[in-house]
Design a binder for these strands. Structure first.
Lengths: 158, 158
DNA sequence: ATGAGTGCAAATGCTTTGCATCCTG
DNA sequence: CAGGATGCAAAGCATTTGCACTCAT
């Protein structure tokens, strides 16, 4: 979905269209790396020096509540935000923290997904996370399978 | 898996068997609610007043590194720990934060899971999260589908 | 006896909050 | 022009770290 379409939907959702929100939406939409709120804040601050944490968090929460982006808890620490609202899953590298989208499988695999609801639990969404090592981290991994690099380094941005 | 079997494995993994670790393992194994490190600390402190944050975190990390428990990032904020190492998935209530295990589907559904690896990414584990509302939260939800209760209340313990 | 493990407290990192001010609709 | 949104700074949690001390092996 493009920026204008989302901004339109922001208004439709009853949210005011401020310059800050426009900037946040633009940045989020054109970034496929699932940035954290902090990362967005750092970047946006360059163009708009008065941009504040609170605004970034407020806006991301408002967008998520309106169903215009989603907040991902893929690893401990910071939440990541994703403007891609098409059904898809995530590839998370245990080595560098890289997060990448994968298209959800179609056909019989996809049909198999929704589980038998248990005890009146209403399932609204099924999230799948594939954890492992990206090509780069796999290369520097010892034969034992242990990580050669601690897990907490700055996530790679591609 | 029972407590003694795990303690045996802790030793096998080259970890020393301290009273603190025994207490942490016991507490974690008998608790199916996927407690956070803080929750474990609060409970354990009653029996062992000198128990510290650092020890709880160190031990949980060591257990996870040895493959004896897993650390779950199911929602923003605190990680949850799970001593159940059999393949299974999680039901997470968006209303109260409740986390419950669900047995992984077998047969054709299970076979469908591992995705086509992308670009040399080595998949080590597939995690599935079913998000929605537990029976209790569904009951107090407005017809619109919006939560009647804010999402950040104390997670229910069952 | 030796080094892994512990306890304490302070530090760090992410996120939320309170409140006065601003500006979109 | 009213109420939502913003900016700033401080507070709130979860987690990590440094270091001296202890104890399991």
């Amino acid at each position: 979905m493009n920026v204008d379409a989302i901004l339109q939907r922001v208004r439709t959702a009853g949210l005011k269209l401020t310059p800050q929100r426009v900037a946040i939406v633009q940045e989020l939409v054109q970034d496929p790396t699932h940035p954290t709120a902090q990362e967005l804040y750092e970047r946006l601050r360059r163009a708009q020096p008065t941009m504040s944490f609170a605004t970034v968090y407020n806006t991301l929460d408002a967008l998520a509540a309106a169903g215009l982006c989603s907040s991902l808890a893929l690893s401990p620490g910071a939440s990541r935000f994703d403007a891609n609202m098409a059904p898809h899953d995530h590839l998370v590298c245990d080595g560098c923290g890289l997060v990448r989208d994968v298209h959800r499988m179609v056909g019989k695999a996809a049909e198999a997904l929704p589980p038998p609801p248990t005890d009146g639990f209403q399932v609204r969404a099924v999230e799948q996370i594939y954890r492992g090592l990206c090509a780069d981290c796999a290369r520097i991994t010892e034969p034992t399978g242990r990580l050669a690099r601690p897990r907490s380094e700055t996530p790679a941005q591609r």
